[in-house]
């Protein structure tokens, strides 16, 4: 479903954030990316839908292959296609503040897919219901709690019927008591067979929901495997140190 080959990202001239990452994610797989701050987790995620332009490397999403070294019109067209097939949730939600919850959710289908409002609304209502917010249908984001905003943001991504969901620290900006409602939605998404790549500090999600955990440090992953293995028996010294630090 997602294939990353030799991905490099350099900021400025010499800040080498991603150093030749290879990674493959199969359909329906839930992958959690862990690692210390500055290890390139978010950048990796953001390179998959080209919110960051990779400096070099080949990215394949759902059969669409983009070579980051080339910057042709053809590649740009493919990048737009990839973005339609990948949903993304941000740490700061980034809901559109001038639109109500339902308007946020139909924005993608209407503007990008060219559906009419009346076509888009039934599914959008279904999604709001699925994230437990049908009563907030006509409310603007400023009137929603952080957890509610993030759930609308998830519904907004799902409205595009994506094949892959990217979560970039979706609960980091939330008050502790609001984290659960967002994680619960992510779990249900995983249960329904969605392919998920998540950068998160929610250990419960990593341990119980993820199929695979990836530990990153210094611009590449240093260890990966099923959560039970990574959490109980990490092989790399740096993973041991990192896990010891966050689990205590």
């Amino acid at each position: 479903m997602v294939k990353i080959e030799n991905l490099h990202k350099v900021f400025g001239r010499d800040i080498h954030v991603l150093q030749g990452i290879d990674l493959q994610v199969t359909a329906g797989e839930v992958v959690v990316i862990l690692g210390p701050s500055g290890s390139g987790k978010s950048t990796l995620l953001r390179c998959i839908n080209f919110l960051e332009t990779p400096t070099a490397g080949i990215i394949t999403v759902d059969g669409l292959t983009v070579n980051a070294g080339k910057a042709t019109k053809e590649e740009e067209r493919k990048i737009l296609q990839i973005r339609k097939k990948t949903g993304m949730c941000f740490q700061s939600f980034n809901l559109f503040p001038h639109m109500t919850a339902i308007e946020n959710v139909i924005e993608g289908p209407v503007t990008v897919l060219g559906q009419s409002k009346s076509e888009a609304i039934p599914y959008a209502e279904e999604l709001l219901d699925w994230v437990g917010l049908s009563d907030k249908r006509d409310v603007h984001p400023s009137r929603l709690s952080g957890g509610q905003q993030q759930r609308v943001a998830i519904a907004r991504s799902l409205a595009m019927k994506p094949d892959v969901m990217l979560f970039d620290e979706p609960t980091s900006a939330l008050d502790p008591e609001l984290v659960g409602e967002v994680v619960e939605v992510m779990e249900r998404l995983a249960d329904e067979g969605m392919t998920i790549l998540a950068v998160t500090h929610e250990m419960h999600f990593a341990r119980d929901v993820a199929h695979r955990v990836l530990i990153m440090d210094g611009g590449n992953w240093i260890e990966q495997g099923p959560p039970e293995e990574i959490f109980t028996n990490p092989k790399e010294l740096r993973s041991q140190q990192f896990l010891a630090h966050i689990l205590n």
Binding site: R83, G87, M88, F90, E107, G108, V112, S157
Partner: peptide, 18 residues
């Protein structure tokens, strides 16, 4: 307008103009 708004729009697949 914060960069996050542009990124959210792009992540949905919008073109710059949209």
């Amino acid at each position: 307008i914060t960069i996050g708004q542009r990124e959210a729009a792009k992540a949905l697949g919008m073109t710059e103009t949209q």
